[in-house]
Design a protein around this nucleic acid. Structure first.
Length: 219
DNA sequence: GGCCAGGTGTAAA
DNA sequence: TTTACACATGGC
């Protein structure tokens, strides 16, 4: 088991520090975030593809359940009996429907509004909701609540595995990448929360395309 | 046809 | 604490 103190890891870290995360290849995820859509997307994307999630979200918008108005969307969803028929494209639709509605109702019950939820919610509260695990919780905290926490996922894990560094434990993997993201503070005016968001997105985009580390660094 | 996708919860050993 | 399995559609 390698760790951040190993020579190979340090070598990698030094090279990745030179990576310009804010330019070149890759897109900003969740343009328009922070939004209640992030909460919905975080659940819908579980074991699914983003393209499928967009189809589900579009169905919910067409049905006038979700819109650009976060408070209205939260209110609408909390009053739904089921959204199964709208979210079939992204799979696991029965449990995702029940869990998303339950989450919306819990937000209303415990915070009263999406705005209050955004500023007051804790990681512990999120993890206590059925259907929200570590990755979904961190996605919501970073993308919807703009907290300084970085999401790690299957791709983050596989990227490091491909380099001979195997870190299975979520928080340990997260700490590894957050150390790296923290070196990007050199971008000054960009908030660290934004840097983490960009970094996670970029890692996924590159990993999906099976690009090498050299390609990642070159872009 | 088989495997995988920006996971999570539950049950059993 | 670890492992196995269900959940379900859609792309390649």
């Amino acid at each position: 088991m390698n760790n951040i103190g190993d020579i190979d890891s340090m070598w990698l870290l030094e090279r990745l520090k030179g990576l310009d995360l804010l330019r070149g290849f890759g897109e900003w995820w969740w343009e328009g975030a922070p939004s209640f859509l992030v909460v919905c997307g975080a659940v819908l994307v579980q074991n699914s593809r983003w393209e499928a999630v967009q189809a589900s979200l579009n169905n919910l918008k067409t049905a006038h359940i979700l819109s650009d108005d976060d408070e209205q969307s939260l209110d609408n969803l909390s009053k739904c009996a089921s959204i199964e028929s709208f979210i079939t494209p992204s799979g696991l639709y029965r449990q995702k429907s029940a869990r998303l509605i339950a989450i919306a109702r819990a937000i209303v019950a415990d915070f009263g509004s999406f705005g209050a939820f955004r500023s007051e919610v804790s990681r512990e509260w999120l993890l206590a909701q059925k259907g929200i695990g570590k990755e979904s919780a961190d996605s919501i905290l970073n993308y919807a609540c703009e907290r300084e926490i970085m999401v790690v996922d299957r791709y983050s894990y596989k990227l490091l595995c491909g380099l001979g560094i195997e870190i299975e434990e979520y928080e340990e993997l997260q700490a590894w990448f957050m150390d790296l993201g923290d070196t990007q503070r050199l971008y000054g005016e960009i908030k660290l929360a934004k840097i983490y968001a960009r970094y996670h997105g970029k890692i996924v985009e590159f990993s999906k395309r099976k690009m090498s580390l050299d390609t990642l660094i070159a872009h």
